Amino acid sequence: MRDSTYAWLVLAASVLAEVAGTMALRHSDGFTRLIPSLITGLCYTAAIWLMAVSVRNLAVGLAYAVWAGSGTAVTALLGIILFEESASLLRLSGLGLIISGVVVLNLSAQ
């Protein structure tokens, strides 16, 4: 597997770990519940470690922008789906802009 392909897969795993940590954070009740709190810490630790591994072969600015944008978009979508958060036209438009920005950043890096 090419180094850049591996780096992108590791970055995707980092995004998933960050999103899982945020979902656990929602259930930690302000870090008063042990298991969700531990899951939050472990997932965030894994997300940062995986990000560090991915930037060995990716530009740090690009990797961070993709990580932050993707994590934000996925977390917001899960909030809408799982926690019945608002799905207003303005919110969905913002998510579309985040996703578009991530795509443009990827295209510009190539």
Results as ranks from 00 to 15, higher is better:
76 A>E: 15
87 A>Q: 05
39 I>D: 04
107 L>T: 12
9 L>N: 07
12 A>Q: 10
40 T>L: 01
6 Y>F: 09
84 E>H: 10
94 G>S: 10
106 N>D: 10
49 W>L: 14
108 S>Q: 10
79 G>K: 05
99 I>G: 02
103 V>W: 01
77 L>Y: 01
37 S>D: 09
105 L>G: 08
61 G>A: 11
10 V>C: 03
45 T>M: 09
104 V>A: 10
52 A>I: 06
72 T>E: 08
29 D>V: 08
97 L>T: 06
96 G>E: 01
4 S>C: 15
51 M>D: 14
21 G>Q: 06
88 S>I: 14
42 L>A: 12
67 W>S: 09
73 A>M: 01
11 L>S: 04
75 T>L: 09
95 L>K: 01
21 G>I: 02
32 T>W: 09
51 M>C: 14
5 T>G: 14
45 T>E: 06
5 T>I: 13
74 V>K: 15
78 L>R: 03
49 W>G: 12
40 T>W: 00
14 S>W: 03
57 N>G: 12
76 A>K: 10
63 A>W: 08
76 A>L: 15
48 I>E: 15
5 T>L: 07
39 I>H: 03
78 L>C: 08
75 T>V: 13
49 W>P: 11
20 A>E: 06
55 V>T: 01
89 L>F: 12
14 S>H: 07
70 S>T: 05
31 F>T: 04
106 N>L: 11
64 Y>L: 04
53 V>D: 06
58 L>V: 08
71 G>K: 02
83 F>A: 06
92 L>N: 03
